[in-house]
């Protein structure tokens, strides 16, 4: 398996199939935690952390527990619970181990529990059928790389959006367009721009 596979997985999940603008997942934190650049960066790093770990855990759960026992129909509920447990574990670990890390990441973790982008990535890793193409172990590497790329894409968009929103605070926006309306218009324009990247890979 060449490095091209990983490169394609990152570019594809980060830009071409961007989780927010192309798949419309994780829109809640996209709108909610993008008022300040500082919050957006913290949220992005926390999402990246949880997304990669959750992808690995859900992938292993699916291919080593659910599929051999022919109970794949409970995958969604199992993934939701696993992700929620993982967030609790990660938060507890950070609380105990590093006060500094908790200060920068931990405060965003409770908000991630309900982030559908995490579940979306876990489900899309399974739907992609990596084990058929690469085998279970190498498929795991590709799946975690794709999750990392997706998290990078999430971070890129939320950071760009927060920068625009910060500039909008000092812009002369008509009263009726202030706040959410202008933010949604900007999100739409960004989605159109990303649509232009379709078909590259």
């Amino acid at each position: 398996m060449s490095l091209t596979v990983f490169f394609v997985a990152i570019i594809s999940s980060m830009l071409i199939n961007n989780v927010i603008l192309m798949r419309f997942l994780g829109v809640c934190p996209f709108l909610g935690v993008s008022k300040k650049t500082e919050s957006a960066v913290g949220m992005s790093v926390a999402v990246m952390f949880v997304m990669v770990i959750a992808s690995i855990v859900t992938y292993l759960l699916y291919y080593y527990v659910l599929e051999p026992n022919d109970i794949t129909y409970i995958s969604t509920i199992a993934f939701i619970l696993v992700i929620a447990s993982l967030v609790q574990l990660v938060e507890m670990f950070i609380k105990k181990v590093s006060k500094k890390l908790y200060k920068s990441l931990g405060i965003y973790l409770p908000l991630i529990t309900t982030n559908c982008a995490i579940l979306g990535v876990a489900e899309s890793n399974i739907a992609s059928g990596y084990p058929t193409d690469y085998g279970v172990f190498q498929g795991l590497l590709v799946a975690s790389t794709a999750a990392f790329g997706t998290a990078l894409g999430f971070g890129l968009i939320i950071f760009a959006f927060s920068s625009i929103r910060e500039r909008l605070d000092s812009a002369n926006v008509p009263e009726a367009w202030k706040g959410v309306p202008i933010s949604l218009v900007i999100a739409g324009i960004m989605a159109l721009a990303f649509l232009g990247l379709g078909g590259i890979v």
């Binding site: 199992a78 929620a84 447990s85 609790q88 609380k95 006060k99 200060k103």
Partner: peptide
């Protein structure tokens, strides 16, 4: 039975991690 057992195990896992996280004190500065 296996399906119910697996879901029950994951639910118990979630409750346990939730309780453990709640009982861990938040650093004062945060």
């Amino acid at each position: 039975l296996l399906t119910i057992s697996i879901v029950a195990i994951i639910v118990v896992l979630y409750i346990t991690t939730f309780a453990m996280n709640k009982s861990t004190p938040i650093p004062e500065d945060c």
